[in-house]
Design a protein around this nucleic acid. Structure first.
Lengths: 148, 148
DNA sequence: GTGCTTGCAAACAGTTTGCAGATAG
DNA sequence: CTATCTGCAAACTGTTTGCAAGCAC
C-alpha cells in the first residue's frame, strides 16, 4: 500500500484537526498502524508497544483504536471467536481472505465485488450501506506444510 | 424454504443416527428451529422454549446448538458485538442481508456469488473452504419509518 | 491551570464448562 | 442400570468503563 510515513502524517493531521491530544502512546500507536502491512489485533499492538512503553495498557490501545474507528480512519474486523483485527491502510469495507490455519489475513483483488452490493440492493429494496466479504481457506504456505 | 415438518424429521433422524438422546428439550428445540423462518439467537430460542419448559436453561440451548453445529445441520452467524444467530434451514454459507436498524436478517438471491469464491481462489492460491458474504443496510420497513 | 488521557481494576456480555442430580435407552 | 443430558452457577475471553493520578496544551 501507500507510503507508511505519509499515512502516519495523515493520521496525525486528523488527530490535530479534531483537537485530540498527541501523547507519546498515541504517536507510537499511529506509527505502528501506519507501518503495519498486516491486520494486527489489539493485543498484538499492545504487545509491541509495551516494549517501548512498559506502562502502556491494553485499555489505552482500545481507547485509541475506538477513537480512530469513530474518525473513520481504521476498519475493525470482528470475529465471533477470535479477537478483532484492525486495518488502518484501507479503512473502508473490502474483501478479505483469511487463513484458517495460521490466521493470516490478506486483501485479495476482487474487482467485481462492488457490483454485488448494487444488485443486492436493487433486488431486495434494502439501502445497502456496508458489507463484509470474507473468504476462509488455507493459504499457499499452509497448504505446503500440509502436503510436506 | 422447505416443509418445516420434513426438516424436523430430518434433524430428528440425524440425532438418532448419531445415537444422541432424544429429550423433550431437544425435541422442542428441533421443532422450533425447523419451523423458524428467521435467524433466531440463542436467547430468543431460550425465551420461546422457556414458555413450554419453565426449567429450560440457556446452557442446554447452547449445548444443543453446538451439537447441531458439529453435525453440520445449522449455520452459526457470529457478530462481534451482537449475539450469534442460527440458521437451521440452509446450513451452508450463503449471503445475508442484515438490517442495521431492526436487526432483521434475510437471505437475498445472489446467483453470481459462487463465481467470486472461485476467482479469489484462482488469483490468490488459497484453497477456499468457506466464506461470509454479509450486506448491511436499512430494510424497506425501516426506510419507511425514517421517511414517515 | 484545565480538562483530556492514562492505566489500573472492576464491570460487562455472550458463551462455555464443571458438576450433581435426573432421565433416556 | 449406565451413560448421557440437564440446569445451575461459576469460569472464561475480549472489550469497555469508572476513577484517581498524570500530562498536553
Amino acid at each position: 500500500m501507500a507510503d507508511p510515513d505519509a499515512r502516519f502524517e495523515a493520521l496525525l493531521a486528523k488527530f490535530r484537526e479534531r483537537d485530540h491530544r498527541i501523547t507519546p502512546q498515541r504517536l507510537a500507536l499511529l506509527r505502528l498502524l501506519a507501518a503495519s502491512e498486516g491486520h494486527p489485533s489489539a493485543s498484538q499492538i499492545h504487545e509491541q508497544l509495551h516494549a517501548q512503553f512498559p506502562t502502556m495498557s491494553l485499555a489505552t490501545v482500545y481507547k485509541t483504536l475506538n477513537l480512530l474507528k469513530e474518525m473513520g480512519e481504521i476498519l475493525e474486523l470482528g470475529f465471533g471467536d477470535d479477537d478483532n483485527r484492525y486495518d488502518a491502510n484501507e479503512p473502508f469495507p473490502h474483501p478479505h481472505l483469511i487463513c484458517i490455519r495460521c490466521h493470516k489475513i490478506i486483501d485479495p483483488e476482487v474487482p467485481e465485488y462492488r457490483a454485488l452490493a448494487h444488485e443486492v440492493a436493487a433486488t431486495s429494496g434494502f439501502r445497502v450501506v456496508s458489507h463484509r466479504l470474507d473468504f476462509y481457506g488455507i493459504c499457499p504456505d499452509c497448504q505446503r506444510l500440509e502436503a510436506g
